[in-house]
Nucleic acid binder design. Structure first.
Length: 511
RNA sequence: GCGAAAGUAGCUCAGCUGGUAGAGCAUAACCUUGCCAAGGUUAGGGUCGCGGGUUCGAAUCCCGUCUUUCGCUCCA
């Protein structure tokens, strides 16, 4: 069964490439690891997902507005958010146990062990000498203690300068010299010390010194927090209100795999909702429910979704849950709903020196707003839609077709216009219809190959409706409209087409 | 990052122990048919992932490298 799911996942990846949804980046140069491009159909699907999200969050909520912040931000933003410090530690791996440690922590643990030895000596001596025992004097005279203290001094004199200078070779050498072994495997078979900063950085301006270093944002949220005052003031926003954003973020993952599930460059759709302190849990519950409703509005089976409440909370959160989706690779995080307290805004107030406060006239009080965040991975949503839609159907006559049952509102193409034959004026008539419909819908005209084959081509990219122009069309201006999932056809007047398609697409749309 | 496997046309693959690359499907043009893919004719498309070595000669053997897949590890 697990194998079966893996196979399906592989098939979906192959299908995504074959039909122009997702290509590996720079494929002609052997590809770039964990970076992907969206193709001619992929970009349409992706844009439709964005649109569906944006409408439900911004257009349908009077108290939510959008922004589009730059990817570059002032470096201090990432100091304030904690991203710089949390991810600049030197790490070392044990090759036998495959465990990873902070290199400096390994050394400090070693120091702690020596300190433990000293402590033991002291306790022993205390027992021996009783009340007359002078600890300081003992430490200053006992040889074993002195040796150990000198050793600690020695280690510290090597460790801290090396840490300050990011001299990883020196740290590695220190670990080797001290003969530190892995607590799990007991082995001294270490990799080099490496720094894993999840943030990409680059230089701004021409001077290549440290002061011009800027990061590619590892999350879009900070662009919202940094603009909180701007938006609240210029938009005359009253709490509770939200700021939404769709945009790219970048994380230099050590291991990024599983197709577009984990990429180094990815896109988030986030909304930060600012609330009165004490009301955050109420809103947290509200957004959890609302976001789940949004997913279910696409008509995907309920059993494909579940909540996963976090037990271990991040430093900034007081409640957090994931919406997980049943990907072919198992239930995985698709969206996060987090109650972020006032951590971010307070930190930005502190680091920027600006007063980030909201005066709440209803309770006559000033406060730093609390934040409830909804954050969904656009690429993951794309993958969810794609893997849910993929179907290899065996028809009544025993033949097979591959069909993407993408919700019509998200489908790359809404309709295909197909003349039944290439002559008798049918192409001309079909072109007429195409020219009219393309003003409202993404359509494709196709006259190549047998009609059945053209239907299958459209099935493979998830086009929900095929409009076929036949000889009767020339007589009474009606066409057939063929539905992707049921493969049934109905005959309708050309003049009604745009209305009918609009109505059909609307089915299942949110709110 | 560690370990294992793989990489030949857009896709799926063949090419036996080294002798200078093939099929089916797909694509394009034309003909034929005309409501659920795969009729006919023709054409385009590959320095066999990349680099190096061995050899008279490498898709084939060796080394390195890149990418992918799986397992481990990581994932505020």
């Amino acid at each position: 069964m697990a194998n079966n799911n893996e196979d399906i996942f592989k098939k979906i990846i192959a299908h995504a490439k074959e039909y122009g949804f997702v290509f590996q980046s720079s494929e002609i140069y052997d590809g770039l690891s964990a970076v992907y491009d969206y193709g001619q159909n992929g970009v349409l699907l992706k844009n439709n997902i964005k649109d569906y999200w944006w409408k439900s969050m911004v257009q349908f909520h009077e108290n939510i507005v959008g922004i589009d912040a730059a990817i570059f931000m002032h470096p201090k933003v990432w100091k304030a958010s904690g991203h710089v410090d949390a991810f600049s530690d030197p790490m070392i791996d044990n090759k036998d146990s495959k465990k990873r440690y902070r290199a400096d922590v390994l050394v400090e643990d070693f120091i702690a062990k020596i300190e433990g030895k000293i402590e033991k000596e002291v306790t022993k001596a205390k027992k021996k000498f009783g009340d007359d025992f002078d600890e300081d004097q003992f430490k200053a005279t006992n040889k074993r203690v002195l040796d150990n203290l000198a050793k600690i001094e020695d280690i510290k004199n090597r460790l801290y300068p090396a840490m300050d200078n990011n001299d990883f070779e020196a740290i590695k050498l220190l670990i080797e010299d001290l003969g530190i072994a892995c607590p799990v495997s007991g082995s001294k078979n270490w990799t080099d010390v490496r720094q894993f900063n999840l943030m990409f950085d680059t230089r701004m301006g021409s001077v290549a010194d440290d002061s011009s270093k800027v990061y590619l944002r590892p999350e879009t949220a900070q662009g919202i927090f940094a603009n909180y005052l701007n938006v609240q003031k210029t938009g005359r926003m009253k709490i509770p209100f939200g700021i939404a954003q769709i945009g790219k973020a970048f994380r230099n993952e050590i291991v990024a795999r599983q197709f577009i599930f984990r990429m180094r460059e990815f896109e988030q759709m986030e909304m930060q909702f600012f609330v009165r302190p004490g009301e955050e849990i109420k809103w947290y519950e509200y957004w959890k429910e609302f976001r789940m409703k949004w997913h279910l509005s696409l008509g995907i089976d309920k059993s494909s979704y579940r909540f996963h409440d976090h037990e271990k909370l991040a430093h900034y959160a007081n409640a957090a849950a994931d919406i997980e989706f049943k990907f072919p690779i198992g239930f995985k995080e698709l969206e996060g709903i987090h109650s972020r307290t006032n951590f971010d805004l307070s930190r930005h107030a502190e680091f920027s020196g600006k007063k980030i406060q909201y005066f709440d006239p209803e309770i006559n009080e000033s406060y730093i707003p609390y934040v409830v965040e909804t954050s969904i991975g656009l690429d993951r949503m794309f993958l969810a839609i794609l893997s849910n839609a993929y179907d290899e159907e065996t028809l009544e006559d025993g033949s097979q077709r591959t069909v993407l049952r993408i919700p019509p509102v998200l489908a790359p193409l809404k309709a295909a216009i197909l003349p039944l034959t290439k002559k008798d004026g049918l192409p001309e008539k079909a072109r007429e219809i195409m020219d009219k419909l393309k003003l409202d819908f993404q359509c494709q005209y196709d006259e190549k190959d047998a009609i059945g084959k053209r239907y299958r081509r459209m099935d493979a990219i998830g086009t929900p409706y095929c409009i076929t122009v036949d000889h009767q069309t020339l007589e009474d201006n009606t066409v057939t409209i063929r539905e992707r999932d049921s493969m049934t056809q109905e005959r309708v007047p050309i003049s009604e087409l745009d209305k009918i398609i609009r109505e059909k697409i609307k089915t299942g749309e949110l709110l």
